[in-house]
Design a protein around this nucleic acid. Sequence first.
DNA 1: CTTGACCTTCCAGCAGCTGGAGCCTTTATG
DNA 2: CATAAAGGCTCCAGCTGCTGGAAGGTCAAG
Lengths: 131, 131
Amino acid sequence: MNIGDVAQTAGLPPKTIRYYEDIGLVKPPRDANGYRAFRDADVHKLAFLGRARSLGFTIEDCRTLMALYDDQNRASADVKMIARQHLEKIEEKLAELSSMRDTLAHLVDCCAGDERPDCPILNDLATGTIP
Amino acid sequence: MNIGDVAQTAGLPPKTIRYYEDIGLVKPPRDANGYRAFRDADVHKLAFLGRARSLGFTIEDCRTLMALYDDQNRASADVKMIARQHLEKIEEKLAELSSMRDTLAHLVDCCAGDERPDCPILNDLATGTIP
DNA sequence: CTTGACCTTCCAGCAGCTGGAGCCTTTATG
DNA sequence: CATAAAGGCTCCAGCTGCTGGAAGGTCAAG
């Protein structure tokens, strides 16, 4: 399978797939013409990567998760630990973002948004005093 | 005021302040010894930047917001527009993250987390089939 | 035989810092 | 007054995870 088809199948851009090869996440053999020749296992790995990335796992997490996937003697506890830590980071980001949203939404609400210069948003940024 | 004191006052690391000078957000004059000599206005700008950044505005947004702040003839509508667009992006990210969280939390819940290899998390990543 | 769609490599750049090396200046202490 | 620590300076490199583009080789269709 050539990279374009793999891209379709795995739902990843060719550039990304090449990058994943670069950093050693997949190792497709080459055809005589130099083209990457993806085997089913490679395509499968890439789909795995795509899903893990779409859940927000870092590349390093993905590497570890794939190694665990390949390891028949893994303990599910190891996988769960990674997932739980990642979940925690997501919760933290959510908290941060939602506090940003609350502040911003309030400021936007307070701003007249007309042609006059008075602006509670700028006032807050300048002084740190939320109206 | 030297960079260290400004860092304390504005709540930004010295490295960040130097970086902000690099990209033209502040332009402190220099003392004879080459040290940056921050004026009150510079410190004020940096605090402004710190607050804008902590609300998640991009550097380019910050640049625009500061320009608007300096412009006595601004229309608050312009500020509000920037804030509203930023708010939208935050909402999008929130939605994305919270869907990640839901999926992950569910998977973590389903995983025994013991010494056995069976793992619904890996199964999902491998097949895209949430239990 | 040519055209166009693929494929290849390599280099650069995005955001927003952060770390470190190597050097100079100021300040505090003995 | 000498010295050492603390702070300042510049410049270069690297982080994450790609993405774009240039310059070129390959392959299938007409």
